[in-house]
Design a protein around this nucleic acid. Structure first.
Length: 271
DNA sequence: AAGTGATCCAACCGCTGGCTA
DNA sequence: TTAGCCAGCGGTTGGATCACT
């Protein structure tokens, strides 16, 4: 019910964005803020549907977006979180500041599945994880993608115990810490639990729980004053009154070798 | 140099749930 | 209670680019 057509598709542009469109969108949002996506294109003078504008902003134009060069630490975290959360890309992205769900999803589908498949190759009893066999051959490294891991790490990955990947049914994550959370409901013990209708596996319930779990970011990302990031104050995500610090690029990620373990443990303990 | 196939990723699509009248 | 609007999510597609022959 209630599903509106995304856009009239009449007279609206589609496909790649031009730099002019980008600047129009960015300028408009800088002046007027995010939101009102449906009416935004008209106000901003764009011949795009609101959905397209939102996607462009979220995945490309938003300040603080990191592009390419996903570090090994980030990669490791993605793999681990995916093992816990499944294809909840937005939740995973919420743990990787500056990364978008789209980027993580793409990275998973193009890079990580291959790696995991390679690692799973000796384990013939394990299902093939590749979404599309046609898309799983050689590895190409563009300048926007990280260099291939050293052979030693590959071998290590291959010999490492296979990571169990649970793939619960994708559900929409209710407004949570990752985007526009309100922890009030959590504090009061209430949960809107839209997915509560679902019976839910343990990982799914844990993920559901995580969606409302306030995270002790400062304890995880212990920032120095100089770590406030690429864009200074912009490197804070405002989340329902909570300010979550954003890491200063990969430097901060690699600066604390225990950080990923902490994050992972935190999730694990919720299962 | 040209042709072909593989790969990547930006963008699109359809669905879901929250909110409101 | 119902219906419509909206924003957000995950899955999928297709054009651009790269690598190989």
């Amino acid at each position: 019910m209630g599903r509106s057509p995304c856009c009239s598709k009449v007279g609206l542009r589609r496909g790649p964005w031009s730099t002019k469109e980008d600047s129009l969108l960015a300028n408009f949002i800088q002046q007027n803020g995010e939101g009102q996506w449906r009416s935004l294109p008209k106000k901003a003078g764009l011949l795009r549907c609101g959905k397209s504008c939102r996607l462009r902003w979220m995945n490309y134009l938003r300040p603080g977006i990191k592009r390419g060069n996903i570090s090994e630490d980030e990669e490791d975290l993605i793999v681990r979180l995916h093992g816990l959360l499944g294809n909840r890309w937005s939740l995973i992205a919420g743990r990787l500041p500056g990364r978008t769900d789209n980027e993580i999803k793409n990275y998973w589908n193009t890079h990580l599945l291959k790696k995991l498949n390679a690692a799973a190759a000796p384990h013939k009893d394990l299902p093939n994880l590749a979404p599309n066999p046609k898309r799983s051959k050689k590895t190409k490294q563009s300048n926007a993608t990280p260099p291939p891991p050293p052979p030693a790490k590959e071998a290590e990955a291959a010999s490492a115990p296979m990571i169990k990947v649970c793939v619960p049914k994708a559900i929409r994550v209710s407004p949570s810490f990752s985007r526009s959370s309100s922890y009030d409901s959590l504090a009061s013990g209430a949960s809107n639990s839209d997915s509560g209708s679902g019976s839910g596996s343990a990982p799914e319930k844990a993920a559901e729980k995580l969606a409302f779990m306030p995270v002790a970011w400062p304890s995880i990302f212990e920032l120095d004053e100089g770590d406030y990031g690429v864009c200074g104050a912009d490197d804070y995500f405002l989340n329902g009154g909570y300010i979550l610090p954003v890491l200063n690029h990969s430097d901060s990620i690699s600066s604390d070798v225990n950080m990923l373990e902490k994050v992972y443990d935190e999730y694990l303990q919720l299962l």
